[in-house]
């Protein structure tokens, strides 16, 4: 192997990347989100999407949902690295459970008149997006669904006068009666 002179062993790794959704149950205390984000930036992991909110306020529990990409070995590392943080209760790889539902919400602002405006409405209807604000020259649509559906909807709106988008990021939950 040819490499520049270095005190480190420089290696290319060619394992294919995978996308996984992790649900992380944490103690809701100051700095906990900074710890999680710091772990990702510090160790060079990717964050595709991250959502967080308190889910059980009397127990001070928050649930963080992270969509990340990496080789299988890296994804396993991420899970273990999260798991060993002191305020983290549990980490579940929702992608591995194969039984998770993922949803995202987006608000999509479109500005147009005439035929494009009519077309936007028609598409919104097909995607079950709701109109939550309207003027004579604009709409704000609210749409929920998995990431692909939302991305597809946004792509369709682009030629129809897309102004801006606000997305929540992914929330995920397992199917069936059991909790995580």
């Amino acid at each position: 192997m040819n490499q520049p002179a270095s005190a480190y062993f420089l290696e290319d790794r060619h394992d294919p990347n995978e996308t996984h959704t992790l649900s992380v149950l944490v103690q809701n205390e100051p700095g906990v989100l900074a710890r999680v984000i710091g772990l990702f930036s510090g160790r060079g992991y990717n964050i595709e999407s991250l959502t967080v909110s308190e889910t059980e306020s009397q127990k001070h529990l928050s649930r963080i949902t992270i969509v990340t990409t990496g080789t299988p070995m890296v994804i396993q590392q991420i899970k273990h690295q999260l798991d060993r943080m002191i305020p983290v209760y549990r980490v579940v790889d929702m992608t591995l459970t194969k039984r998770a539902i993922e949803r995202e919400l987006a608000m999509v602002k479109v500005r147009s008149t005439g035929e494009p405006r009519v077309e936007a409405l028609r598409l919104a209807d097909a995607f079950r997006a709701r109109v939550i604000d309207a003027t004579t020259e604009s709409f704000v649509f609210e749409i929920t669904g998995n990431t692909d559906k939302i991305t597809q909807f946004i792509d369709l709106m682009r030629p129809l006068g897309l102004v801006e988008v606000a997305r929540t990021g992914v929330a995920a939950i397992g199917r069936g009666p059991e909790g995580m």
Binding site: M73, Q76, Q77, H80, Q81, D83, R84
Partner: peptide, 8 residues
């Protein structure tokens, strides 16, 4: 003792 050391 640290699961994150495994397969790192």
């Amino acid at each position: 003792i640290d699961p994150s050391s495994i397969n790192k």
